[in-house]
Every structure is written in structure tokens, then in C-alpha cells.
Nucleic acid binder design. Structure first.
Length: 279
DNA sequence: ACACCCTCCTGGAGGC
DNA sequence: TGCCTCCAGGAGGGTG
């Protein structure tokens, strides 16, 4: 599933291709993919606008448009943004069709096409005047300079909740998902069921470093591909080779050799080492 | 405040 | 081989 590193990889790819492009044609095949406005208005109001800037906020792709609107994309579970260069061959099918999972096509004046593909149709696109309407509730960016161990400590202290579901909460910390929370907790030797407010300053510091390490390494590896994730060109990431616990049930912990266990925490499959992640 | 449930979806896995 | 049921999971909503 796309989390912060996967979205960051997609955004970096879009930055080099999309800025300056002008939308020529929009086609929505599955209207419910468009969160706002209604799909027909989305098609009309996106046309003619130019992409000024592409950034990331949490797991959202944020495209600033001129005249002033913002196009936001959330990939959720299986969403993909795919880029196709202009098709020069006369008579070639355009936009690329025959793929029932491609739900939105955006064709640019240059002839290039950006399409949104999503097997499970959980992903959402938003066309809004003010991106804060969608992004306003998001918590801290874990890779921002302002996110310090002290900030993390202050975020955790008020909560008696279990640490894992809390870290998945986007209004607390924006960008972590099921994979990287498990990886960060293993890296920091903290049990997923640990109550957030019981973390010591030293543990908060360890968790802070672990979150940053795990996310940065995944960005350097262009994301984790367990099943569906791919970049703009359809290429998988390499970070799956660096996972310590995810999908390693029964295999030896890289730190202590104990068998990795799987449990369900907050309804999510959770992988951890029962020996070196203390409750 | 927090745990738990449901909904949205569909491919893949497991049971028989 | 084939059919059927179950399941994962991000986020938002509701309930206890």
C-alpha cells in the first residue's frame, strides 16, 4: 500500500514531468473515484488549467493549478498514477485502453497522459479551491525539520492508546501506514501494544530516529512493492528487500534470531519480534 | 478517550 | 479443476 515513501517517489517523478503542462481533456470512468466535486464538474473545471507545482502532504499528492485550484490524489490501497508520453504513432489507441482498472484519464496539451488506476477503487481525487479543506486535519510531517524527538514525545504523552493504532492516525502523524509503523516499532524495539504515554524520553527518541530511518531508507529504495505499488513508469520499488518484520512471520529476527510473530492490532495485521520488542 | 464495528472494493488464497 | 467463502486494508463514519 502506498505510504509516505511511495507517494514521495511518485511526486518526485511528477515534478520533472508535470510542471507546466496544461490540461486538455479529462475523462472519469468511475465517478465515485472523484471525492469532490461531482465527476462531471471535475472534468469541466480541471480542463484548461496549468500544473504549477507538485508536492506531497502526508500520503496526498498535491498539485497546484492555475487559475487557482488544487488537485489532490490519495492512492489509498491500490491506487496508481501512471504517466504516458505522447503517442506519435498514427492510429494508436489513446488514451491507453483495455485496462478496466484505469478510472481517470487526464490528457495534456503536449499529448502526454496521466491516468489514475486502482484495482480496489478506494483511491480518491479532489479538485478544490483551498487544499487546506482536505489537508487541514493532518498531523506533523515525520521528515520535516520541525519534527523533533520532543515533538513526538509531546504527541504521544496525552494518549493512553496502544502505540501502533496511534501512529497510524493521520491527524497525529501524517504519512505512516501499516508497513512502516511495524518496521519503525521493530527498529526502536517497542512493542505495538505498548501504551503511548508510557514511553520514556529515551524510547521516544529511539522511535523518532526509527521512523525517520525507515521512511528515508524506503524513499532511497523508491518504495516498497509487496503487490501493487509501482512508480509513474510502472516500475516496482526495492524496499521490500529491506523489511525487518513485515510478512516475515516465523522467520528469524535479524537482531535476536527469535521467530517473528503476527498478531491483529486494531484490526490490522501486525508483525513484531516477541523477544526484542518489549511491552 | 478509546475500542470496536461497518463500509467501500476486488484479487488472491484457502477449503472442500 | 472448480466453486464458494473469506480476507486484507486506509480512512471515515457510527456505536458502546
Amino acid at each position: 500500500m502506498p505510504e509516505l515513501p511511495e507517494v514521495e517517489t511518485v511526486v518526485r517523478g511528477l515534478q520533472t514531468r508535470l510542471v507546466g503542462e496544461v490540461v486538455a481533456e479529462v475523462c472519469v470512468r468511475w465517478p465515485r473515484i472523484i471525492a469532490t466535486p461531482a465527476a462531471d464538474r471535475f472534468e469541466r473545471e480541471l480542463c484548461g488549467r496549468q500544473i504549477i507545482q507538485v508536492t506531497r502532504r502526508g500520503k496526498f499528492v498535491v498539485m497546484a493549478l492555475e487559475p487557482s485550484k488544487s488537485l489532490l490524489v490519495h492512492l489509498r490501497m491500490t491506487g496508481q498514477l501512471l504517466w504516458a508520453e505522447p503517442i506519435t504513432t498514427a492510429g494508436a489507441p489513446e488514451p491507453p485502453d483495455g485496462d478496466v482498472h484505469r478510472h481517470v484519464f487526464i490528457r495534456f496539451a503536449s499529448g502526454a497522459t496521466l491516468s489514475f488506476r486502482d484495482q480496489r477503487k478506494f483511491g480518491r481525487l479532489y479538485l478544490v479551491d483551498d487544499p487546506q479543506d482536505v489537508l487541514g486535519g493532518l498531523g506533523d510531517e515525520p521528515l520535516a525539520a520541525s519534527f523533533t524527538p520532543q515533538v513526538l514525545g509531546a504527541l504521544l504523552r496525552p494518549h493512553r492508546r496502544r502505540i501502533k493504532p496511534l501512529l497510524l492516525e493521520q491527524r497525529i502523524l501524517a504519512g505512516l501506514g501499516n508497513i512502516y509503523v511495524d518496521e519503525a516499532l521493530w527498529e526502536a524495539s517497542i512493542h505495538p501494544l505498548r501504551q503511548a504515554h508510557t514511553l520514556s524520553d529515551v524510547e521516544a527518541e529511539r522511535l523518532h530516529a526509527a521512523i525517520r530511518l525507515v521512511l528515508q531508507r524506503a524513499i532511497d529504495n523508491r518504495g516498497t512493492t509487496l503487490r501493487d505499488y509501482c512508480d509513474l513508469q510502472g516500475q516496482p520499488g526495492r524496499n521490500q528487500e529491506y523489511l525487518a518484520v513485515r510478512n516475515r512471520e516465523g522467520e528469524a529476527c535479524y537482531r535476536c534470531g527469535q521467530a517473528i510473530e503476527r498478531a491483529v492490532v486494531g484490526g490490522r495485521g501486525t508483525y513484531y519480534c516477541p523477544r526484542c520488542q518489549s511491552v
